[in-house]
Design a protein around this nucleic acid. Sequence first.
DNA 1: GCAGCTTACTCGGAGTTCCTAGTTTCTGCC
DNA 2: GGCAGAAACTAGGAACTCCGAGTAAGCTGC
Lengths: 183, 183
Amino acid sequence: MLNSRPLPFDAIAEARRQWEAHGWPSSPAMTAVTSIMRAQQIVLARVDAVLKPLDLTFARYEALVLLYFSRTGALPMGKMGDRLMLHPTSVTNIIDRLEDQGFVRRVSHPTDRRTTLAEITDAGRQAVEAATEATSAISLGMGNLTDEELDQITELLRRLRLDAGDFPDDPDDTHDTHDGPGG
Amino acid sequence: MLNSRPLPFDAIAEARRQWEAHGWPSSPAMTAVTSIMRAQQIVLARVDAVLKPLDLTFARYEALVLLYFSRTGALPMGKMGDRLMLHPTSVTNIIDRLEDQGFVRRVSHPTDRRTTLAEITDAGRQAVEAATEATSAISLGMGNLTDEELDQITELLRRLRLDAGDFPDDPDDTHDTHDGPGG
DNA sequence: GCAGCTTACTCGGAGTTCCTAGTTTCTGCC
DNA sequence: GGCAGAAACTAGGAACTCCGAGTAAGCTGC
């Protein structure tokens, strides 16, 4: 299970108490960071658990969804890394596995011979649909939080991602002129 | 760096658009989950970057802090796993490395011969202090978020951790009767 | 047209996490 | 006292992540 031996108290709140008792700085940041780490661990474990019967992990599912949504069902691996915020070697790793499973096919780029396209197969599309059903059934592991609370989390973390340079800060950009999301 | 090739748009917002355009359910949960995943990745990369010169990672730093705060400077490895929410084998791995580095020492338990205590060394204490200074200097990677925003994140994720069974839901528990946090 | 730089992907290795399985030791029950 | 079950740690292996380095191919400038 996720929590074989639960504690009788909140370890993160207790860490904050200790932190402040020692006069250490940045305790709100420390507490937020450990909360994010733990939340990621909880959610990932829950999602991976329901995906396990389908022979998928969250990482591979995300890659597969990206291809599923793309216009032609195929994307350059480098572009996938950009969209998924993954290192090129991680994409290679994931596509290796998905290809072994028959969910994806490597195709050479028609004009740029450096580039390899990853193309989703019919089996891959079926897997995405089954996986989406499975993960949605558990609200992707987010438990009983309301849609409002979920959107608050998204908005707060959006500021962190903005600060990290994940996307430009142009408030009223309609994306009309971008090369763009449609891949 | 963290983001070698930034996108001209917000990949997570775009994913949500696609998700909803396809009529898929749980889009607030999906968006929150991917935001949490990305936030964890950003923060971990930033913290690990400033800890690298000290030959530490966030995982090892957390373990070291736990020992630093403990009354006797030593804890059973199983108890460390409970507090850090880590699998026993992960604790073994971390203590192996910290011991190789001389930041921790394995000590046998005085009465229970199954148990191994991890004890922080003087070098370990110095490393914790240097690492705390380094991580605090970058607000543990949380960028320019205010203390209020950080506490909002902590509170929202606290509900997720509660739902996951990380700690009991006793609102006015003073912990007086627990075996307790003081380790 | 060719040198030099950049881009795209892959390989090998390190670090963290988990799981399954194993050994040793303690505890509880008869 | 002894046996069964539980608990504490370790070993080996899988999955994901990154980094550094290497190869192949495209692009730029002279």
